[in-house]
Design a protein around this nucleic acid. Structure first.
Lengths: 154, 154
DNA sequence: TATTGTTATACTCTATAACTATA
DNA sequence: TATAGTTATAGAGTATAACAATA
């Protein structure tokens, strides 16, 4: 989870650290809630991410999926194995390049998403309820700036 | 990691989702950098968290550690096993309650922190460099509000 | 030669739940 | 009865690296 949590007003640590500690804490706690809700559908967070990524871009390759999910292509193999074994996605060989698999949602996968997505959205809205829309935008804008500035040495 | 990343301006998703997706992405990428730096010292992020938590509160119990790290006490056992096997912390029986272990850094653990902490801080500062201090405070304030509002049903 | 995907290895973290010893 | 810690189980994710097929 990273870095200790303590919140006294005289905390001498830099604001980078305080912001990061809080972010990590929120990430962990919210992620856990989302994961628990997904568990009811037999989905892990990583597996849900696969489905949700495909929802917005069917036909991507495993390579592309690994870039979106920020995991190695080796790990994507196992992930895709598990999700396709469950019948939610399928690999289809690319007709033009026989090295490539392209990934598609099955009807079952689409149906599962239709069931699982509303709950995820609701959990998220509930967790972030203390923030006004302008504040959500603010967080998005600031963190997007950080994301864009991170070199993609990964 | 949770929820797909795509950034087009007409993205119809709610700001909760956009903020969350960005937060998750930043979390993942920065965490990975921090983890890589810790790897040079033979530390995982969770293990570093143990050491850093003890630095700010030596003598806590395993139970207390599990609450700070947001993991179950069962998992803390293994975590403490590994970190103490490496010689960085030690369990000392509580003299007043024989059920309790209290945790302390060893000299080696303190020395390791002295080596590892500056790099962690530097990585963090580097990653968050695009943000002004006021913006870091803003993120801290907003996310703290979210954290405080989350019910601790975990 | 470079790329896509696969396989193999080994470790860490996680959740869950039953168990013990103490209180 | 309740609490602190332990053990056991099983699954999931991760990194790393070598490999096959294809380009």
């Amino acid at each position: 989870m990273s870095l200790p949590v303590l919140e006294d007003e005289n905390d001498p640590r830099d604001w980078e650290i305080r912001a990061w500690v809080t972010l990590v804490r929120v990430y962990g706690r919210v992620e856990r809630r989302l994961a628990k809700a997904l568990g009811a559908y037999g989905l892990s967070v990583a597996q849900f991410d696969v489905l949700a990524t495909l929802l917005h871009g069917e036909g991507i390759t495993q390579q592309e999926l690994s870039e979106r999910l920020l995991v190695t292509k080796g790990n994507v193999v196992g992930l895709v194995d598990r999700v396709s074994a469950a019948g939610w996605i399928e690999r289809r060989p690319d007709p033009d390049d026989r090295r490539v698999n392209r990934l598609y949602l099955t009807d079952a996968g689409r149906a599962l998403l239709r069931k699982a997505l509303p709950g995820q959205h609701a959990s998220l809205k509930s967790a972030l309820r203390p923030l006004l829309e302008a504040e959500l935008k603010q967080i998005h804008t600031l963190l997007k700036r950080v994301d864009d500035a991170l070199p993609d040495t990964e």
